[in-house]
Amino acid sequence: MQFMILLNESSAELAKRSDPQQAPVYWGGWNAFIGAMTQAGIIVKGDGLEDPSLAATLRIRGGKRSVQDGPYADTKEALGGYFVIEVPDLDAALEWAAKAPCVHDGSVEVRPVLRMPAPPA
């Protein structure tokens, strides 16, 4: 089964990316986590995401466009990256999610990937 793991990082965690003191530990942790998943051969795809301040959110309401700086909601946690993994079940996906560096200060959401029913012939 495929699951998407959504890696929500706290703003304190995200700030470590550009802090010369903390960056080596920050990236070291992520490299190790991604390395372990790679070695296990479970990654289908995945990416890290740039800082949420670089995001723009678009809505069209009643034909009127509205573009807003930043992510959808201004919360303490923001999406920092995602992976789609191939594992037997939700238990196994949760087990990997527990090893993500952001789980202690942020959170990890685990969602089954929707399998579209085959189109009618």
């Binding site: 070291g28 942790g29 998943m37 070695q39 527990a98």
Partner: peptide
């Protein structure tokens, strides 16, 4: 150590391994 770090859940063990790596 890097493989171990990638498989660690406990935050205290995580920083112990990170320190060893550094």
């Amino acid at each position: 150590l890097r493989r171990a770090l990638g498989l660690t859940e406990d935050p205290a063990v995580r920083s112990f391994l990170t320190d060893k790596l550094l």
